[in-house]
Nucleic acid binder design. Structure first.
Lengths: 154, 154
DNA sequence: ATGAAAGTGAAAACCATTTTCATTTATAAG
DNA sequence: CTTATAAATGAAAATGGTTTTCACTTTCAT
């Protein structure tokens, strides 16, 4: 994703906020520019710290409130961590799932087309009407894998 | 699962605790009997409340500490909720995934055999070495679905 | 410019979970 | 059956991410 398209993404988020009746403020612009540009999930405090470079008076509360709005608009996805905390990541196009590197925090989306069948099968067998699902894979990205180790059985 | 086998399950958990060098105490017996017998995921406070019927002096802290041990022994599985809190559920036999009813809290395990292929494919395509995964489906169990509503597009 | 409503941020509140620490208890040894 | 001791307990306090409160500021329509 180039700088130009990242800026376009941030602009489109600001447009969405406006379209939904929200106002454009300096704190929101700072938060939007950071989250739209980040290829990895960030937690609220990271966004807060980065945001204060751009807008020193920024408050952590505003970070949470803005993320909540961006999530409601479907622009940002909340990522649940094993420790119960949340990180925030721009939404993918269409429905994809998350792949997170436990070492560097890098994330990628991947398409889970196969999952549709799994969910349908499970719904049929169990009788459940399935409304929502979480699939997150955790591991080591290519760059974080030990380069020298003999191949392992994983 | 019959009463007899539930009691056997609780006994086997107590044996596991002993085998790992832990002591058997009244609070632990109460917690084990509740969690081993429950077909649905319970949160810490639910276990605390149920546990005090059996052992009135039980403390919430002990519930957390015992659940931590049971989880480490692989006997209990922690279920992450969308709100960030945790519930606790006896572990399935082998690797299965969770299906939770958003209405009544009933849960079922289902086998995600198909997921193995998805994970392998994703690992190959992304270069990630995948170590862990979460798959949880949320919906309405058969009993909680609106019986009278006209069929919907879900 | 002006006013009303939305937005902000510091501080306080919240709440699930964890830590602290003095007391109690299970277990092994005698 | 005692006794010693290390583990376990529970009340209270601490923690830490997140949310609420509220007085003040800012946006935007007029």
């Amino acid at each position: 994703m180039t700088l130009i398209s990242i800026n376009a993404l941030a602009e489109s988020w600001l447009d969405s906020l406006l379209d939904s009746g929200y106002r454009l403020t300096a704190p929101r612009r700072a938060i939007v520019s950071i989250v739209a540009a980040s290829p990895r999930a960030l937690d609220a405090v990271e966004i807060y710290d980065l945001g204060r470079d751009e807008h020193p008076r920024l408050g952590l509360v505003t970070v949470y409130r803005t993320l909540e709005k961006l999530e409601q608009l479907g622009l940002v996805q909340r990522v649940h961590q094993p420790d119960g905390c949340n990180m925030y990541l721009r939404s993918p196009e269409g429905h994809e799932h998350l792949l997170l590197c436990k070492s560097c925090g890098q994330m990628e989306y991947f398409r889970g087309d196969d999952l549709t069948k799994l969910i349908e099968d499970t719904s049929r067998r169990s009788g459940y009407q399935i409304q929502e699902h979480w699939l997150q894979l955790f591991g080591l990205c290519a760059g974080c894998q030990p380069q020298n180790s003999p191949k392992e059985d994983g």
